[in-house]
């Protein structure tokens, strides 16, 4: 069963003079196992939208159904929330326990799992995020490096085996190697746990590489939604909105402007390289 969002509207401080509508009339569906990339500039309502997915905020009007559980209803919310794992941007907001092991087991413990199942899941989660059990299990989460903290925070959610994994800019503040590692990890979880992923990111290159579906938010409404090929073929529009389309998409559109006859739907470096390689043999129509 999917996550269904129907005509969702959310207004901050509804009814007061400071009322501000962050999301307006958004409808979308997230299917099982799907990888959805969510993009939009600052203040476009991304964070507000993903917090609706596990009921941290409730709709002002409209509906959010997680596998049929209505997130506006207090009792159903708890059940729906158990299916949606949410990783926030900064690990500093969730790490608290004495050791990495205990911190990762916080979620599974709240799910009231049996101790040996918790232990199994913590080990599995640590393996998936690439934290060596013997080295890190007994360390304090506060003496870790930035990247290790993020892995620990991620493992804390992974260990809950969510059906839907929601990530709010999981790569913010990481170096290129760190970004690649996190992205590879996310792909791993999907394969091994079969979960759907909703990822908010500023980096469209990262989204271009992994997403099945891309949703572009603008001023609280869906501006565009479709496959990466569909979305990134409109890279000029995205650029004007203040977003940074994938490098390959921008390069392709720039080359076309200079007379190169390239096929449409280029948004990864590999596709761009293939298209350019096809030009070999002097077919450069300038």
């Amino acid at each position: 069963m999917p996550i269904v969002i129907e005509k969702l509207t959310y207004t901050y401080q509804s009814g007061s003079v400071n009322a501000f509508t962050a999301i307006m009339d958004v409808s979308l569906t997230i299917h099982d196992g799907e990888f959805v990339g969510l993009i939009g500039h600052t203040g476009s309502g991304k964070s507000t939208l993903i917090q609706q997915l596990n009921g941290l905020m409730q709709p002002t009007s409209g509906k959010v159904l997680v596998d049929g559980f209505d997130m506006s209803d207090k009792k159903q919310r708890a059940k729906g929330r158990a299916l949606v794992g949410m990783v926030f941007q900064y690990p500093d907001y969730q790490l608290f326990d004495e050791t990495v092991y205990k911190d990762i087991s916080f979620g599974p413990k709240n799910m009231k799992l049996a101790p040996d199942e918790i232990d199994r899941r913590v080990r599995e989660a640590m393996r998936l995020v690439g934290l060596d059990f013997d080295e890190f299990a007994e360390k304090s989460p506060f003496e870790l490096s930035g990247g290790e903290k993020r892995r620990t925070a991620l493992a804390g959610i992974i260990a809950m085996y969510p059906k839907y994994l929601v990530l709010d800019e999981p790569m913010a503040g990481l170096d290129p190697a760190g970004r690649r590692a996190v992205l590879a990890m996310i792909d791993d979880f999907r394969k091994q746990l079969g979960c759907a992923v909703v990822m908010v990111s500023h980096s469209m290159d990262d989204i271009a590489r992994s997403a099945d579906k891309v949703i572009v938010l603008r001023d609280g409404a869906i501006f565009a939604s479709g496959t990466p090929a569909e979305i990134f073929s409109r890279s000029d529009e995205l650029y004007e909105m203040g977003l940074e389309p994938p490098f390959a998409a921008r390069m392709a559109s720039e080359l076309k402007r200079h007379g190169f006859r390239l096929p449409g739907g280029i948004y990864t470096n590999e596709a761009l390289a293939d298209a350019l390689a096809a030009y070999k043999g002097g077919d450069l129509n300038v």
Binding site: Q51, N54, L56, R81, A82, V84, G85, M86, F88, Y93, Q94, F96, F106, G107, N110, M111, G156, I157, M160
Partner: peptide, 16 residues
């Protein structure tokens, strides 16, 4: 503001 964010992060981990 920060307390609010932390609370959300822990609620998302099933904190009661």
């Amino acid at each position: 503001e920060e307390a609010d964010k932390i609370m959300k992060a822990q609620l998302a981990r099933g904190a009661d």
